[in-house]
């Protein structure tokens, strides 16, 4: 028996929005530790790694580890039927072929349930090595989203350069070039508005705009985003999910031919 209840059901809706454009389908792995998902996009250029710890659910029971393969377009249809203020409960039997979603309104006067057929997915799992990154930058997530959107108008890829002074995003295209520099903030009133840079070595790497813009669909999950960069390895873009989870996107760099 698997049962997970999240009072703040809007978090699950936001998680869905954060992955549904990148992935067609994905397996949700459930264990007593919580819910995990790892999936690559079709082109194997980016990977989504989602972790929601069991401690973040107000009810969590998982008697046996199980994997639930879901079509994300179908899942999205179901979660769109939940209001932002609803509590969401997921339920499945051991070795399930369906999963049930129950949405309860705040006053419990409206309860709806939807069941969805699960699918068998033969998904490749990748071992992601522990990496000490040369630069780790934390910045407001809305700012990152705006920069990616603005610079995407001018070219297909964005070069991210990081030094101890700050982080620079650059684009070059047919009509010209664009650069956005963010300095490390000295002191800000709100932690959510800070830009912080932890740098061992300066780094400059280039990434496809298309994927960066997909990642920014996670912006409503967290006011801050963390970018981890090292020379010649994939970028990691991380958004926290409340106090109990995260969504990490890995993106392979573009290199000179």
């Amino acid at each position: 028996m698997f049962e997970a209840r999240l009072t703040q059901g809007s978090l699950l809706k936001k998680v869905m929005e954060a992955i549904r454009e990148l992935l067609n389908e994905a397996s949700f792995d459930c264990s007593e530790n919580g819910i995990q998902l790892q999936a690559m996009d079709n082109s194997h250029v980016s990977l989504v790694s989602l972790n929601m710890g069991s401690e973040g659910f107000d009810k969590f029971r998982c008697d046996r580890n199980l994997t639930m393969g879901m079509n994300l377009a179908s899942l999205s249809k179901i979660l769109k039927c939940a209001s932002n203020s609803d509590a969401i409960t997921l339920k499945a039997q051991d070795d399930p072929d369906t999963v049930t979603f129950t949405f309860e309104s705040e006053n419990n006067e409206r309860v709806s349930d939807y069941s969805m057929k699960l699918i068998n997915l033969d998904q490749e799992h990748l071992g992601i090595p522990d990496t000490e990154y040369s630069c780790v930058v934390k910045m407001p997530s809305a700012d990152f989203a705006r920069i990616c959107k603005d610079l995407s108008q001018f070219g297909d890829c964005i070069t991210i350069s990081c030094t101890k002074e700050g982080i620079k995003f650059s684009v070059a295209g047919d009509i010209g070039t664009g650069n956005v520099k963010l300095a490390q903030t000295a002191n800000v009133d709100k932690e959510s508005e800070a830009v912080t840079v932890e740098m061992q070595e300066p780094v400059s790497l280039t990434f496809a705009c298309r994927y960066l813009n997909h990642f920014t669909k996670a912006t409503p999950l967290s006011e801050q985003v963390q970018l981890s960069l090292s020379a010649d390895v994939p970028l990691v873009v991380e958004y926290k999910i409340g106090e109990f989870g995260h969504i990490r996107y890995y993106l392979a760099p573009k290199i000179d031919e």
Binding site: H44, H125, G127, P129, P234, Y250, K254, I255
Partner: peptide
């Protein structure tokens, strides 16, 4: 022109 790498160049299959 730049070449897009894939993740298989970095991560091992489990």
């Amino acid at each position: 022109p730049k070449k897009q790498l894939t993740l298989s160049a970095f991560f091992d299959q489990r």
